[in-house]
Write a protein that binds this DNA or RNA. Sequence first.
DNA 1: GTCTTACTAAGACAATCGTCTTGTCAAGAT
DNA 2: ATCTTGACAAGACGATTGTCTTAGTAAGAC
Lengths: 191, 191
Amino acid sequence: MPRLTDTRDRMIRTAARLLRRQGYAATGWRQVVAESHTPWGSQAHHFPGGKEQLAVEAVTASGGAYARLLATAFADNHPADTVTAWATAAAKELQTTGWADGCPVATVALETAHVSDSLAGACGSVFTSWRGVIADSISRHGLPMAEANSLATLVLAGIEGSLLLARASRDPAPLHDVARELAAVLHARLD
Amino acid sequence: MPRLTDTRDRMIRTAARLLRRQGYAATGWRQVVAESHTPWGSQAHHFPGGKEQLAVEAVTASGGAYARLLATAFADNHPADTVTAWATAAAKELQTTGWADGCPVATVALETAHVSDSLAGACGSVFTSWRGVIADSISRHGLPMAEANSLATLVLAGIEGSLLLARASRDPAPLHDVARELAAVLHARLD
DNA sequence: GTCTTACTAAGACAATCGTCTTGTCAAGAT
DNA sequence: ATCTTGACAAGACGATTGTCTTAGTAAGAC
């Protein structure tokens, strides 16, 4: 039987937005329900697994959307150029949102890494998919897959880490510094 | 007038441990008081600024301790070797604690970046001090300070990012991958 | 019509949150 | 010895947390 309302999707979307900004513990059901304009009584119906299930689906959804974004960005350009553009776009988003919108899953991942198996698994899968996108692009530019995976891990870790540093210092400089360093490495090792 | 008990210090130490594992929102006064074996009634006396003040002091304390650790590690060795040892030690700590003990301040930084000025400032200062330690070591090995700062940002972001990826995937591989890549970069650019 | 299923309404629930108020204690000055 | 003052302790406080319950509505199947 098809779904009759979009309540479930709206809950997931606003949960994803809130999880990105304030993390898992600080995001309550009441705020999700209020900002998504969904009925209070529908939580248990759509998410019998409770808040944890909502968060898993929200992380998976926003992680997947981000993966598609990365895939198109890395498709037809040199990895070094894409990394630079990525950092620039992330810096702009950080600044225009008052340092609120960083990585969609990093905060949740750190909060729940050792507490929730399901959430840790969801976050881990997201990161793995992102690394795969980057590694594919790198391997297409001339590196064997093992080496490409290692280099892609450096790229992803560098972006994630610089997003962290930029948010903490409220300064986009770390993003630009890291992007320039990463671009240099990528230019030196790829065609 | 000298302090008569170590209540305040014990609160800060256990708060630092809990903030590292579960972040700011998930760490409550009650858990801090219980695990530090301190009296419930002493919160407001020692920390009139409330939970936020406690967190600021805890982050500053553990960030300072980590900075001293880094300073001795980077003092007499080549940066590339220190980075490798750093990642190895962090990986071991992650595994032995069940992926609980990662970066002492990263989770708090992401959670409170756009909410609390004082906490964001404390986390930002910690990261800046760490980067300074790394940059000093790099400049001592032959790079001008501007370039050393940029490269140190890459190193710190890479370690922080790989700590995030390792915790999420519950696998120390990202730490070792990133450390190897960073060591290669450092060897290529330094004496 | 009568089902069955999908969904919402409106709260109650115990537990927990951070903060605040009041009372006790100990130490140094006079 | 008494007073004063800063340090500390115990509990109460209202607000908020996630979850669960019970009832009621609406839409498609037969």
